[in-house]
Amino acid sequence: MKYGYFPGCSLLSTATEYARSGEGVLNLLGIEVEEIDDWVCCGATAAHATNHLLAVALPAISCSASEKQGLDVLTYCTACYSRLKQSNQVLKDSPELLQQINEIIEEEYRASERVLHIAEVLARDIGLEAIKAKVKKPLKGLKVACYYGCLIARLPEKLRIDSGECPTMIDDLMRAVGAEPLDWPFKTECCGAGLTLARQDVVVRLSGEIIEIAKENGADVLAVACPLCQANLDMYQANAEGKTGKQLGLPVLYFTQLMALAMGLGPEMLKLEKVIVDPMPVLVEKGLIDRGVYL
């Protein structure tokens, strides 16, 4: 299997640990990826919140490039995933808009066959059995609160790949690598997303609540699938503690980092040092990591 890889901007900077660990896991499972030629930022909320043409035109350039390479689109960031998938669909459904976009992007748009998220590729295209077969060090006893955020869960109904209120795809992946996914109520609550700089007050409150509920439910770590969720949930814990007086301190990892750990990949692929709330103590305590390897 081969996919057209759309890294998205965050995976080149704030979320290189997502890129590396995902790449490692896909490699181990025999999946080939080829970067989409000259891909462009999806525009995220900034585009769809202010200009509907831009919101479709930006993803269109990358989807079309991937189709020219003859590959399905593979995304990691859930915002890129949501934007690319929705824009691709809108252009399939609306010939008038398609014509306008063709003029704007100076080419005949070629719709992608499929736009996929890495969790979907792992859980559905590859399958849980193949993943279980690659596990070297099951994450035994690790209680993981899987956090999906908004963008995977809330696509329009016909594009949705999992339940909108209680998705289970990442829980299945965590179970496949031996961890213990928790049944908890904040799987799809919003972290504040793109309001991160402009309305920090809102983001600190929302992210703080998510961490608090995960801790109350006994989580050892939070597993996420979106670079912006990771940044908000990881970075603002100290601010939330200052506001509520409650002690937080819950490591927020990408689900691919946990999979990579279970599959025996090394520190250079896991990049655990990039996470702000240190995950080492809990991983060492559970016997999942030999601290010596990291020092």
């Binding site: 995220a44 909320t45 900034a46 585009a47 202010t50 793109g194 700089l197 402009a198």
Partner: peptide, 22 residues
């Protein structure tokens, strides 16, 4: 107003580079 400012700064960066530089 800050939210709009953020969106504008974001899109200016995309227009300049094609990708976002945080």
């Amino acid at each position: 107003a800050e939210v709009l400012m953020f969106y504008r700064s974001f899109l200016d960066c995309v227009k300049e580079f094609g990708r976002l530089n945080e």
